[in-house]
Amino acid sequence: MYENLGAPQGGPRPPSNTQSNPLENAFYGASSGLIRGGLGAYGERILGSSSEYVQSNISRYFSDPQYYFQVNDRYVRNKLKVVLFPFLHRGHWTRVTEPVGGRLSYKPPIYDINAPDLYIPFMVFGTYIVLAGFSLGIHGKFSPEALSWIFIKGLVGWFLQFVLLKASLISLGSGEAPFLDIIAYAGYTFTGMCLAVLGGIIWSYSYYFLMPWTGLCMAIFLVKTMKRVLFSEVRSHESSKQHYLLLIIASAQFPLFVWLGNVGFHWLF
C-alpha cells in the first residue's frame, strides 16, 4: 500500500531528463582519455623503469643463482685441479663469452673452466665440517658444541675472505663485480683446507706440510683470478696499487689457512 504513496494517481508522469549535455560528454571523454592515456602511460613508464632498474641491479650484483650450479663431473674434476694445482694450469685464465640477446655474456661453468661456481664451495665447506668433526672425535674432543663452533668458524673464515676480495675491488673503484662471483672465489678456500685437515687425520705431521702448501696454492689461484678481474673485467689502470692489493690477498691466505686448519674446541683457536 506504500508503493504509490506521493505519486499522482493516474495521468501522465513528468518526463525524466535522461539526455545529458553534449559538451559535458565531450569534456568527460577527453578528460577520462587523458587520465587513462597520459597518467597511465606515465605510471607505466615509472613502474617499468623502476622494474628495469631493480632487475639490472639484481643481475649486476647477484646474477642468476642457477648459473653457478651448471656443472658436471668433468668440470668439477678440472676445477679442483686448477684450485689445488694452479701452477699446472696451462690454459688461459680469462672467461669465455657468448652473444646472448644482442650482448656478450659469460658461458656457464659447464662450458668454461674459469667460470666461478657455487657447487664446489658448498660441497667442500660441508666436507670441511665433517672432517673437522672426525678430527675432533679422534682426539676425544667431539661434542655438538664443538662442531657448532667449527661451523661458525668456517662461516667467519668464508666471510673474511669475501671481505678481503670485495674490499680490494672497492678500493680500486670497481665494486660492481657480481656478488655471487666473489662468494664463489672466497669459498674455494675450503678446497685446500679439506686436503690439509684430511692429511692431518691420516698422519698428524703432514699437517705442517700440507697447510702452507695449500695456502700457497690458494694464494696463486686467487692472484691469477683477481688479476684477471682487475685487469680484464674492471679495466682499472692503477697498476702499482693493484700489485700491492694482490700481494695483500696472497699474504692473507697463510694466517687464514692456519686459523681455519687449527681444528679446536673454540672457534677463536
Rank of each mutant, 00 (worst) to 15 (best):
Y2T: 05
N4A: 12
P12K: 12
R13S: 13
P14A: 11
S20D: 14
S20L: 15
L23P: 00
A26K: 06
F27A: 15
G29F: 14
S31T: 15
S31D: 13
G33R: 14
L34N: 01
G37V: 08
R45G: 11
I46P: 01
S49W: 08
S51P: 01
S51G: 11
E52V: 04
N57I: 00
I58L: 15
D64F: 06
Y67K: 11
V71P: 14
Y75E: 02
N78V: 09
L80D: 09
V83K: 06
F87W: 07
R90T: 13
V96P: 03
V96E: 13
V100W: 14
S105L: 13
I110Y: 10
D112A: 09
N114Q: 08
D117A: 02
Y119K: 07
S135Y: 05
G137Q: 13
G140L: 02
S143W: 05
P144I: 07
L147W: 09
I152T: 14
G157N: 14
L164F: 06
K166R: 15
G173T: 00
E176M: 09
A177F: 09
L180M: 13
L180Q: 07
I183W: 05
F190A: 05
G192M: 01
M193H: 12
C194H: 00
L195C: 06
A196G: 02
V197K: 06
L198A: 04
G200N: 15
I202K: 07
W203A: 13
Y205S: 04
S206F: 12
Y207C: 00
Y208P: 02
M211T: 01
P212Y: 08
M218T: 01
I220M: 07
L222R: 06
V234I: 03
R235H: 12
S236W: 03
S236Q: 08
Q253I: 02
F257G: 03
W259S: 10
L260R: 05
G264K: 03
L268S: 11
